[in-house]
Amino acid sequence: MNIFRLAGDMTHLASVLVLLLKIHTIKSCAGVSLKTQELYALVFATRYLDIFTDFISVYNTVMKLIFLGSSFSIVWYIRRHKIVRRSYDKEQDTFRHYFLVLPCLLLALLIHEKFTVKELLWTFSIYLEAVAILPQLVLLQRTRNIDNLTGQYVFLLGAYRSLYILNWIYRYFTERHFVHWITWIAGLVQTLLYADFFYYYFESWKNNVKLQLPA
């Protein structure tokens, strides 16, 4: 494992912890998109089916369990926790799941490496992960007032995706290893979705003002 991959995993882990910490300690999920969290839960549930069939390493299994556990507990908090659920802004978080899930399903059926159930679910999860942040980005743009923790959560997620790209580039030059083009394109699309957010995040950081996205 190279440094970019490890840093990517760590920022991913940090993003999830920041979000759980916010929800658990402040008992608020204001500004957090339940739609995005449900999509991530679906992404991990379809991608990590291999924990039952393959063993890669303790690190790999532990990380998969953390991402599965955290995404489902965040969904549980927002839907079921008697205090947290009150802070959920349903009126603003209106993005439709099927608008993203159906095209990804269709794309996975059309473009994949192998036509097996496990492979199709993996490909579907790659496509869905690329766009799962969209409801969260739309919500941020609508609410305007972004609290620090939500801003950091999205920033860390974007950093994780950028580091994965660097990891693939590094592996290409050091190991001559080609990541499959499906992974490449989905990864690039996903990273580009954060470009706009990154711009405003750095601007607010540079000028030391509160993060606000333009309407």
Binding site: M1, R5, D50, S57, N60, F67, Y164
Partner: peptide
Amino acid sequence: EEDLERKDEL
């Protein structure tokens, strides 16, 4: 053949 590196990525 299986791509072990791909399987390792999260």
